[in-house]
Design a protein around this nucleic acid. Structure first.
Lengths: 64, 64
DNA sequence: TCATAATGTCAATTATATATTACATATTGT
DNA sequence: ACAATATGTAATATATAATTGACATTATGA
């Protein structure tokens, strides 16, 4: 399942996948695959994504 | 950095590391190392831990 | 005090997240 | 229509999460 919340938050923050990747220090592919739902990211990476997008874990990665 | 919140939640739920591991379907060592702060668990595993302990990601894995 | 459960940790192996490089297809602006 | 940017995806390599099995230590209860 795609991570739509993360993509929406990223677009709202007006950053590209590549820019977000640079901010966090991972590759663009990693960001792309997480948004596509093809990676099961590590907690540390999830937290870095949240901080970069001014969101919390529940905002981006918690369902229901 | 130890994951004190997770340990507290587990003890409050009155389950041992081994019982929690069984519920989730991982090994006791994995639970132990996450509580000890020596593993960087996957998002999927974090979510399973939360559900087993009736908590959310923010409850157990989000700081400040 | 003794037995048992719970926890901490180690070494070796396996599975998988992430990196790297590269190419293809959208998308957007001019 | 063209150029530039953004996104999707594939193959291989590497780092590390997670497993397995085992042993030691620390609670906890009888």
């Amino acid at each position: 399942m795609k991570n739509k919340k993360m993509k929406i938050a990223r677009v709202e923050s007006d950053v590209s996948q590549e820019q977000l990747a640079e901010i966090i220090g991972v590759t663009r592919q990693t960001i792309n695959l997480i948004e596509s739902g093809k990676y099961n990211p590590s907690l540390k990476l999830c937290i870095e994504i949240c901080k970069a997008l001014n969101k919390t874990l529940n905002d981006l990665f918690w369902e229901e």
